[in-house]
């Protein structure tokens, strides 16, 4: 029944518990073989639709949750209650892998985060590329526990592992003309089914002002919970700006461009009145369609209620100085 939200045709509605295990699925295939080719051919057509979800379980294979060795703990977010790993990795906005929150965890399994290079372009002394391996050596990896506030008024607390973007900016040697940094994400229709439909203007593009990019809070994350990033969280490398709404954090970054003009970012292009370039967390400026003054913490449970949203997501001390004199109601 195509009209139902709960339709099984929509992968976003498939509960992990409903997903056929590989064993059962393969047994069914054996059965089909045994039942005769004619019957199998007909039924296989029906099953093929189901199989896409069936062979890609939400829970990860043991070998894909690889630990990162050698990162230091930091004081960032000490005392915060972490959002559970399961929630962080199954509730994702990553439209390249589908628009449902549970789509990325299912659809991103075929995505290959290695080998990977990031090309550095634009207003730099010399355009160059950096491999993910070299990026990991640019600066010591550190764990930072950051709050993540989504523009949809929910929030998480995530222990990222990464390095300050500032270290990459330094390595890139931008010229004096570089006023903004543009982040361009992978958009491969082969491994990213969402890219095949024009829901957003691909590739996903985000941007920061130069001072925001080099702010000590700004992180290039390569892992979470001490492990390399799961694909659905933006493997192999993504941007994390905890004082801005989550959509600012471009995932699977393939290109970093230093530019002299404010980049046109993807969500800005999709709805300029709803998603500004700055996208700083601001409880006083509502999204046109919903309130931003409070948020639902993910993992708080059915009766967990809401908490008040803080200016700059509680990071005023570190970032407010960058916006003094700016009208944040207009520059939302």
């Amino acid at each position: 029944m195509i009209i139902l939200n709960q339709s099984k045709l929509n992968p976003s509605n498939i509960q992990p518990s409903e997903i056929t295990s590989r064993e059962v699925f393969e047994n069914r295939r054996h059965f089909l073989k045994a039942a005769g080719f004619g019957l199998a051919a007909g039924s296989a057509l029906l099953l093929s639709r189901q199989s896409q979800a069936a062979i890609a379980p939400v829970t990860f294979k043991a070998n894909s949750r690889q630990k990162i060795s050698g990162f230091s703990k930091t004081a960032y977010g000490a005392g915060e209650k972490l959002t559970q790993y399961e929630d962080v990795t199954t509730y994702n906005n990553y439209y390249e892998f589908g628009t449902g929150k549970s789509d990325p965890a299912i659809q991103a399994t075929l995505f290959k985060p290695r080998p990977w290079t990031i090309s550095i372009e634009g207003q730099v002394k010399k355009a160059k590329t950096i491999s993910i391996e070299d990026l990991l050596k640019l600066a010591p990896l550190e764990e930072r526990i950051y709050r993540m506030r989504c523009v949809e008024a929910w929030s998480m607390v995530i222990p990222w592992v990464g390095l300050p973007l500032a270290s990459l900016v330094k390595w890139a040697e931008p010229t004096g003309n570089a006023k903004y940094v543009e982040f361009i994400s992978e958009s491969d229709p082969q491994s990213m089914p969402g890219v095949r439909s024009p829901i957003l203007d691909w590739p996903y593009t985000e941007g920061l002002r130069m001072d925001e990019a080099t702010n000590p809070l700004t992180l290039l994350a390569v892992g979470l919970y001490g492990e390399y990033l799961p694909n659905q969280n933006g493997a192999p490398v993504r941007l994390v700006t905890p004082w801005k709404y989550g959509f600012k954090g471009g995932k699977a970054i393939v290109k970093i461009r230093f530019v002299d003009k404010m980049p046109l970012t993807t969500w800005y292009k999709a709805g300029p009145s709803e998603y500004g370039f700055y996208a700083n967390v601001n409880p006083n400026v509502d999204h046109p369609r919903w309130t931003q003054s409070s948020e639902k913490p993910i993992g708080a449970g059915l009766f967990g209620g809401r908490i008040k949203t803080k200016m700059f997501n509680g990071y005023s001390e570190q970032v407010a100085h960058m916006y003094t004199g700016m009208d944040l109601n207009r520059n939302f």
Partner: peptide, 28 residues
């Protein structure tokens, strides 16, 4: 699903969407 803690990461949104959808389905 609620009793078995199986409503996903955002259970409230799940219930909101589910009840809203079914209201619309019955209306149609």
């Amino acid at each position: 699903l609620g009793v078995n803690d199986n409503l996903g990461a955002n259970p409230i949104e799940f219930i909101e969407h589910s009840t809203g959808t079914w209201a619309l389905v019955f209306l149609l």
